[in-house]
């Protein structure tokens, strides 16, 4: 179901359209520069970054794929991010449901806890967290599942805020009607509320996937096995103590952004659909 605001093509349509095109140009431009840069060497990038490559160096892509093994890191990151995103969506939407559609006394405190958790910069809690994790033998280093737990925890607050904001807008009569029909809470949640909330779920899925895919500090600390490197660690391959291999790095960046773009486009479509007419409080 295509859901868009049908507006007469008045002034606002054209003004907004002009802005749309300008913004598209200034967001696309850097991506094009990245493509150019992936075909240059250091001296050309530093000397004239914004120009067309004078003599395209396709070898940069060979270095990125063959030497830096960027494809394997991409696969690792995609795997890690997909699983983390699924876990985050499940836990996050369940909590969002309770916080937005019930009036328990503890809701306020639960919300407070999640709020406190997103304010602190990562470097403040890094050492205590690593200490905690190192004490628990189940959470070994070089394991993706430790990372997944951490990623889920990190992504939860944002997802809870977005999903509960959306769920607040869904008419509460829906719940009551479902209960009268004999639905229990899981049935109500999974069969009725979740399908309606697809736009919010898709939004937080994109955000969570993005955050996990680009996360670096924890991946750096947990993963020492080369075959398990994630994309952000893989990109460090090109950055030396006092020198950087820019060309191959940009080639790797181009390759690394593709899965993210595909994921985005897939879920972006989901933001448009969902909402059942009449189920929203008006």
């Amino acid at each position: 179901m295509e859901k868009s605001l049908k507006v007469r093509k008045g002034m606002s349509y054209w003004v907004l359209g002009l802005f749309a095109i300008i913004w598209a140009v200034i967001t696309l431009y850097p991506f094009i520069i990245t493509i150019f840069s992936s075909l240059k060497n250091n001296d050309e990038i530093f000397g004239s970054m914004l120009k067309l490559p004078s003599d395209p160096i396709w070898h940069n892509y060979y270095i990125a794929i063959h030497d830096a093994k960027i494809l394997r890191t991409i696969m690792n990151s995609v795997f890690l991010s997909v699983i983390s995103t699924i876990g985050m969506l499940l836990f996050g939407s369940m909590i969002a449901y309770v916080l937005s559609r019930t009036k328990h006394v503890y809701n306020k405190y639960v919300l407070g806890i999640f709020l406190a958790g997103i304010v602190l910069p990562i470097y403040a809690t890094l050492v205590p967290l690593m200490k905690l994790v190192s004490k628990i033998s189940f959470l070994r280093p070089n394991s993706f599942y430790t990372l997944m737990f951490i990623y889920i925890a990190i992504c939860l607050p944002e997802a809870i805020f977005i999903i509960s904001g959306y769920m607040k807008g869904i008419s509460k009569e829906l719940d009551e009607a479902a209960i009268i029909d004999g639905c229990n809470t899981p049935q109500l949640f999974f069969k009725i509320l979740l399908p309606i909330s697809v736009p919010a779920l898709a939004t937080s899925a994109i955000i969570a996937f993005l955050n996990c895919y680009n996360e670096m500090v924890f991946a750096l600390l947990f993963i020492t096995e080369k075959t398990m490197y994630t994309v952000s660690i893989g990109l460090l391959y090109f950055v030396g103590k006092k020198t950087v291999d820019m060309g191959p790095m940009f080639a790797a960046i181009i390759l690394a952004t593709l899965p993210m773009l595909i994921f985005y486009m897939f879920f972006q479509e989901r933001i448009q659909s969902g909402m059942v007419a009449g189920s929203v409080k008006g």
Binding site: L126, M130, L221, L236, Y237
Partner: peptide
């Protein structure tokens, strides 16, 4: 390889 990443890991 990268210096900041290295020190993050060493310090931690």
């Amino acid at each position: 390889y990268e210096e900041k990443a290295y020190y993050d890991k060493l310090r931690t």
